[in-house]
């Protein structure tokens, strides 16, 4: 067998292995998060698996327990399918009701136990028309 042929065969083997690995990885990675509806439709598929759920924080469902550093809220995408989430940790600055979040963790029965809480922000940028009145007061209102 010629050296060139060997190189071609070797190259093809390496290339196809890499391609197979990346396609497999890509299929998993491109689904960055599931929606509550998808998780509730097939609970058995998500049992004891670390997954991410992306949805909106249902307004009125947020309970922040500062003493235990525990944040509980419900997430939903369509205001029909809800998943209660419990997150042990500090409440992020950008966390608001009605905001998009991505939580990473596991389903435990009906409740999603989140290890990581990421806050999405919208692509809409806005300016408060009152901002010129008092910058100091405005900054204070942001940190609350």
């Amino acid at each position: 067998m010629k050296t060139r042929t060997k190189f071609v065969i070797g190259g093809l083997v390496i290339f196809s292995t890499l391609a197979a690995i990346s396609i497999q990885g890509l299929q998993e990675a491109t689904v960055f998060f599931y929606t509550p509806q998808e998780v509730l439709a097939a609970p058995a598929d998500f049992e004891n698996k670390t997954i991410r759920i992306g949805a909106l924080v249902q307004p009125g469902s947020v309970e922040w327990n500062a003493r235990q550093i525990q944040l509980a809220f419900k997430v939903t995408e369509d205001s029909k399918h809800f998943i209660p989430v419990v997150y042990q940790g500090v409440k992020p600055d950008m966390f608001r009701e009605g905001q998009g979040v991505v939580v990473e963790g596991k389903m435990q029965g009906e409740v999603f136990r989140a290890q990581q809480l990421l806050v999405k922000h919208s692509e809409d940028y806005t300016v408060d028309p009152e901002h010129q009145k008092s910058k100091e007061a405005y900054y204070q209102s942001l940190s609350q």
Binding site: M94, H121, S122, Y125, V127, D128, H131, K135, Y139, L142
Partner: peptide, 11 residues
């Protein structure tokens, strides 16, 4: 430039 409403100064 005014401060953005939801993100604040970090924007």
């Amino acid at each position: 430039t005014p401060v953005e409403s939801s993100q604040g100064f970090v924007q």
